[in-house]
Design a binder for these strands. Structure first.
Lengths: 210, 210
DNA sequence: GGCGGGATCAACCTTTTGGTTGATGGCGGC
DNA sequence: GCCGCCATCAACCAAAAGGTTGATCCCGCC
């Protein structure tokens, strides 16, 4: 194994970047070589600097999303691996990050030791998932039949936006009966029995946009 | 002016605590004397240690909410002042913190200088609000007739969580008729005519937690 | 002391939703 | 070709939610 593991921190919060620096500085085999306050800057730095692992937030205040930056970085051959480090663990976020090529997914409340272990795993090409995240992925694999269809998700999103069945039927050029049918199926899959509960459950699972 | 400003950091994320420590350590007149990973511990430490300013997060993974801890700390005479430092800027959070007695409200994406300035202001008994927060409070003062009452917000939050009127009435020890009355008032204030639309509108305006 | 707003509840009625059953057509897999 | 899943629609009934009117109590304010 060659020298120290070279890290790039990508997070829009100065406090979080300082915290990561401080936490990672206690590990002698780590070296933080760059910081990025935006996703765009992270992509630039990842290809310009010699970096082994990128610690990537998903939500940036403005501009590119962390998942898009992850895709851009991992698309390059011989590029660094990307370890996602975020506050949220919704299905939508996790899936987006995994599909973008992230090698690991950590939550920001992780203790420092777990963080260090995940960075070493990522640098060695091994995957690193927070326990809560792993549980979510497992649950999704175990119960694939409960995934909402495209149309069901579309209808549910409009419900979350506050539309009535009739408004949804007009918006999607459907009969009100069809909207009701879709919703009844959604209720069954989510284990709820009202539109507001369905929206809450879908939000909690990250099935619709926040 | 007496000695250095003594600080207590209350946040459930180790990385954020380390970041605050690192950022505040660059100010020679600051001294971080304690850290708390839970709101309960923050209350204990705030009365046991000699502390001037508490930097308080609002959301803790489990247990007491930061606003409740703030209320408990500021209820004591000669206690420290509480400066709320959180990621969110919804009306509900801001109002809860202000009513709990917080002297300031900062967002975690604040640059270090702003953070330091706010701490000094708080220590001197002056209020410190992030610009986005101040804007929200102004907007609320300009349109007071449309502001939701405490009870209305409480009911609406439970609606957003997916509860039926009957479940809400049981949860809050109310009659179902009262829940309906509150909601009708909410619909009028928000300009909507259904519970799902009310939740969507309240979310868009930051009246309930995301 | 009155006035307004908040919080509480009741009765009544209309509209919307939820739940069920059933039916049609398309599409992909074994 | 048949089966399962998705998408579409209909009719019917029961339950929940929305809308109105009206009432009581308490509190802070001028």
């Amino acid at each position: 194994m060659s020298g120290r593991i070279r890290l790039l921190l990508a997070d829009d919060h100065p406090v979080v970047r300082a915290g990561l620096r401080a936490v990672l500085a206690t590990e002698p085999d780590f070296e933080v070589v760059a910081e990025a306050a935006t996703a765009e800057r992270a992509v630039t730095l990842a290809e310009r600097e010699h970096v082994d692992v990128v610690l990537m937030d998903l939500q940036f205040g403005t501009g590119m999303h962390g998942a898009d930056a992850t895709a851009a970085i991992t698309a390059r051959p011989d590029g660094p691996v990307v370890l996602v480090l975020t506050t949220y663990d919704t299905d939508a976020d996790i899936l987006a990050a995994v599909e973008a090529g992230a090698i690991g997914y950590l939550l920001k409340d992780a203790p420092p030791e777990e963080l260090a272990a995940a960075v070493r795993a990522a640098a060695a090409g091994r995957s690193a998932l927070a326990p809560a995240v792993a549980r979510r992925l497992m649950g999704r694999l175990r119960a694939p039949g409960t995934a909402l269809s495209r149309r069901e998700t579309e209808v549910l999103q409009l419900v979350a936006d506050g539309l009535s069945n009739q408004q949804i039927s007009r918006r999607l050029h459907l009969s009100p009966a069809t909207v009701k049918t879709h919703l009844v199926h959604v209720y069954g899959k989510l284990g709820v029995d009202s539109r507001t509960a369905a929206v809450a459950a879908a939000r909690a699972r990250g099935l619709i946009r926040p």
